[in-house]
Design a protein around this nucleic acid. Structure first.
Lengths: 123, 123
DNA sequence: AATAAAACAGTAATCATTACTGATTTCAAA
DNA sequence: TTTGAAATCAGTAATGATTACTGTTTTATT
């Protein structure tokens, strides 16, 4: 197990407690329930560290905020423009493997996001 | 042909003049070469309109700025963390069709981005 | 032309994120 | 254990991309 600071453990445990793709602000509020005086800057710094270490990823769904994700495997995100819900879709394997392989590209972070209208909202 | 204002035409023509996935600021600077006193707010408003009308799309590559793209077909973006270059990879067809079809999702905007190291930077 | 609606230029405000500062904690070597 | 350098922290200030506002100009319709 990695030797993380108490603050970094708190941030990571908050992200791992949910599948809702939280924002930095939400993570901050939750982390304060564990460490009441944790600072927002600390949350941001540790989010960056956790991204760099590959423990989490982040995605952009077009609302101007960064959303974090405990699931680091390549998967698809369906983001509803109406209700804001983000749905994960597991992939059997990365459908783009052949494409970036051919281009000689070394992937580090895959973000596959489709915005649209979810089944519950389309009526 | 749609009846666009002079300013919206200028913004669209700037985007269509390049395959470099420009930011709002770059588009603003270029648009000023066509309409010297065009305002940044006008550029932003028309970028939003052009996105809503489906004439352009935008992607996020993790640098905190929105990047615009004249190519509205589903395609893959390879974004180099080292040199910042964004490479388009054409797709024969959308590899996620089966996935969101099953979920009953109506797609409007597909953003497939992989960050990593491009061939030229890997040495 | 007269009118209303839409789009504009210019500027001010917003707000997510980053940078900074001085204090605290960690931890390896003595 | 002390010691001291490096890392991390809390708290706050600054940044900067984007959005909102205001009063003016353009456009479209009668």
């Amino acid at each position: 197990m990695k030797n993380f600071s108490r603050q970094r453990e708190a941030v990571l445990s908050v992200i791992r407690s949910t599948d809702t793709h939280p924002t930095a602000d939400w993570i901050y509020e939750e982390a304060r329930k564990i460490i009441p005086n944790i600072s927002l800057g600390t949350v941001y710094r540790n989010l960056t560290e956790l991204k760099n270490s590959g423990d989490i990823i982040s995605i952009d769904v077009g609302d101007g905020k960064e959303h974090f994700d405990r699931d680091i495997s390549p998967h698809l995100h369906l983001s509803c423009k109406n209700c804001g819900k983000i749905t994960d879709v597991a992939l059997l394997d990365d459908p783009f493997k052949n494409y970036y392989g051919k281009a000689g590209f070394i992937p580090e972070n895959c973000r596959y996001v489709i915005s649209g209208i979810c089944e519950a909202c389309k009526l």
